[in-house]
């Protein structure tokens, strides 16, 4: 049974002059232990979707089922109790400015009605996990963005949740800090088994941490699957747009015979093109390349212009296919 199940979820915002369909028939299953990325351009409905998961936004229709419980059937009190199991972290951290680090972490447990002694003990553990023990008496205004997000993560972990929802949690951070926050989230997922849902507009976030990905476009899910599936063979237009963001651009491909090599998870430490040139004694022209490394495997594509000689052309194609790469003929317009 999936831990989070969204069924035919829709959300409509009624304004005075117009209604906006923020979400249209969303169906999604997220299993225990997944790190699930939900990616889309801004305005695609990501933030509304994540707020529907903990009912900060009530869906217009459809259901959200968490751990077997349909959220629409819960009373206000039951919903508040459930939210202690579904923590959330935010783009702008949303810490209490008038409380220090300890006070902010304590807040989540005060809400949950925990005893003072228990709160103090748990804070020490959490500070250890997020590595902020030496900053425990600082106020948010004295911390960097990355440190503030660590406090938010500690606060999110305080009530031993099953799920952590991340709403653009790294979008306000620089690349180095982003990496360290993502590493922390991965660590939490591995060691504590907490399911993580990540809302983002950054491909790199999904690549580096997610096991599964859903692509949301204009309020609807365009594509859902494991990160490997979706990234190697994107089917929908929205997915292609996100993954081969530059592929539509003019690559200056001219005449002659060209091939497209598709990398679908081959070992990234093998230098295919270099060994092709060395072993076959041929030259190729790299017209376009967009590959990315996901956990030691290469995904993406490359377009090569081949030499005039037909024998050499066949040799190159044979060599690459033999290496397990998918090779396709390309017409001169790049498709």
């Amino acid at each position: 049974m999936p831990l989070i199940e969204l069924k035919h979820l829709t959300k409509t915002f009624k304004g005075k002059t117009q209604t906006v369909e923020a979400l249209r028939d969303i169906n999604l299953e997220i299993n225990q232990g997944d790190i699930y990325g939900i990616i889309g351009m801004s305005g695609a409905g990501k933030s509304t979707l994540v707020r529907c998961i903990n009912f900060l936004e009530r869906p217009t229709s459809g259901s959200v089922i968490i751990d077997g419980k349909d959220l629409s059937t819960l009373s206000q009190k039951e919903l508040r109790q459930l939210r202690q199991q579904v923590s959330m972290i935010f783009q702008h951290f949303n810490l209490l400015q008038q409380r220090d680090v300890r006070g902010n972490i304590a807040f989540a447990m005060e809400i949950a009605g925990k005893k003072k002694a228990e709160i103090d003990r748990r804070i020490d553990e959490l500070l250890e996990i997020v590595g902020l023990t030496d900053r425990q008496h600082n106020y948010p205004s004295q911390l960097s963005g990355g440190q503030q997000q660590r406090v938010a993560i500690a606060r999110a972990l305080a009530t031993n949740p099953k799920i952590i929802l991340c709403d653009e949690a790294t979008s306000a951070l620089d690349p180095t800090t982003t990496t360290s926050i993502l590493n922390l989230l991965r660590e939490i997922n591995r060691t504590l088994g907490i399911t993580i849902v990540i809302i983002t507009h950054e491909m790199s976030v999904v690549e580096s941490i997610c096991s599964h990905v859903a692509i949301i476009d204009d309020g609807a899910l365009a594509e859902v699957g494991t990160v490997e599936q979706v990234f190697s063979q994107p089917k929908s237009k929205a997915a292609k747009k996100l993954i081969f963001r530059k592929a539509g651009a003019d690559t200056g491909v001219m005449g002659d015979r060209m091939i497209r090599i598709v990398f679908e998870g081959t070992a990234s430490n093998e230098p295919y093109i270099a060994s092709l040139i060395l072993e076959c004694h041929v030259s190729v022209n790299i017209m376009y390349a967009d590959t990315r490394d996901v956990g030691g495997k290469t995904f993406g594509q490359m377009i090569l212009q081949l030499p005039e000689d037909h024998l050499q052309q066949d040799k190159i194609i044979y060599y690459l296919r033999n290496k397990g790469l998918r090779v396709e003929e390309v017409s001169s317009d790049g498709h």
């Binding site: 579904v86 949303n94 209490l96 409380r99």
Partner: peptide
């Protein structure tokens, strides 16, 4: 409003949001 939303996401009741978030902040 983000801090209030964070409190709601933790399951804080309205009295708790007023007394522990809005007034102290």
């Amino acid at each position: 409003p983000g801090v209030i939303e964070a409190a709601q996401s933790m399951g804080a009741s309205i009295p708790a949001i007023i007394l522990k978030v809005i007034i102290p902040e």
